[in-house]
Design a protein around this nucleic acid. Structure first.
Lengths: 228, 228
DNA sequence: GAGATATGAATGAACG
DNA sequence: CGTTCATTCATATCTC
């Protein structure tokens, strides 16, 4: 039953969750299975797991499947992240940021694929989602712009130190008669001027571009060009 | 679900989760990057951004990743919302070459752009994850830096002198009859003009915007536009 | 300081 | 599997 239903609104007392929200007990079970090494349960295992989980609340095979998929994916990502973090050196400030999750060991498992390669239906059953989205919540969500941000204007950069960023010289040229500052090196015409223009020098010769739309050479400071 | 309540433990032992609170300077930087068109920075870019932000306070790659993810999501939703609100406006129109395209305001775009169409490979999309390897090369012989990486409104333009600089050529156009300097590349309409306008060229055609409310292409120097 | 809002973080569900 | 989207949760921030 979709919210549509035509009839009058009002109804939506039934707290229909569009997406599965695992109960703490379910998470505990899933977590322990995962941590035991079974990070990628075959289909039949998935079904068993689902049945186990059902004792604590509605859940479908697909939910279990997705859970493991996400768990593997995110666990691995985190692993990589901090691996990389270790690689990168110091930098003072050391970041903040990351969340908890102590890092359940990501122990890989032989990997038994189920269902052959990929997808193909994960199985069609289920889902809790029986529907609906509902929600009458109307949240307004207007924009926003950190007003406070605009106020405090700071002077940024002025001190650099570790930022190997190469910067390209900015030169001043005349485009269609107007003075303009542009990158001194080869540039992406479309990105810079907003369209696939042919840049023509005042002498009448067009500035050559490569197959990607980049100027092969930078413009010459103080010269006049036209966008055609 | 509240962490409490669960008899047995849940999956979040550490109840104290302090969240990153970006400094005004950091927000300004992030906003300018986003508004410049880089709405979905690849992993390496994310790292660079994080390093830049670190000058103003502790921050991790994950924070940057989440920031862009949330920014895209919320910007997109907002855009969708007001597009829906505008749907009621006459749509088809047929012919008169004028009003017709006023509402063509929303042409979806692939999503990761900023290299503009063809930039050669800088873009890719990855995220925090990335794995590995790859990236071998880096000898770009062409690209240097996405030209579209920049700064957006000429007003704030911290001509700094250090690293990473986001700046795009500024062009002069006429908006509602007034001469005005704007970013030459794709820009965030709302951020630039202060409202969700449809930018109409003097020829009567509307300048297309993407799902985030960004102009797909920059304005043309010296041309006349109207905000509707 | 309770309620409303802005927004960082987390995660289920897809897609390719 | 990596990536991305849509929601949801939780907290920082602001207001009266």
């Amino acid at each position: 039953q979709t919210p549509a239903a035509a009839d009058s609104a009002a109804a939506t007392p039934p707290p229909v969750r569009t997406r599965w929200t695992p109960k703490p007990e379910q998470i505990l079970i899933l977590e322990s299975i995962f941590n035991s090494g079974m990070v990628n349960p075959p289909k039949d295992e998935t079904v068993r797991i689902r049945k186990l989980l059902e004792k604590f609340g509605p859940v479908g095979d697909a939910n279990v499947f997705y859970w493991f998929q996400n768990r593997r994916s995110r666990s691995r990502r985190r692993q990589r992240q901090l691996q990389a973090a270790a690689t990168s050196a110091s930098v003072g400030g050391g970041g903040a940021g990351f969340s908890q999750e102590l890092m359940a060991a990501d122990c890989y498992y032989p990997a038994t694929f189920w269902g052959s390669s990929s997808s193909s239906g994960i199985q069609g059953n289920i889902n809790i989602s029986d529907t609906n989205n509902n929600n009458n919540n109307n949240n307004s969500d207007l924009i926003n712009f950190p007003a406070s941000v605009l106020e405090q204007s700071p002077k940024f950069f002025y001190e650099d130190s570790s930022c190997l960023q190469f910067r390209q010289p900015v030169i001043t040229v005349f485009i269609n008669g107007m003075s303009m500052d542009v990158s001194g090196g080869p540039m992406d015409v479309k990105a810079a001027f907003g369209g696939d223009f042919v840049v023509v020098h005042s002498s009448g010769t067009a500035v050559p571009i490569n197959e990607y739309g980049f100027l092969l050479e930078g413009l010459k400071p103080g010269e006049n060009y036209f966008l055609v």
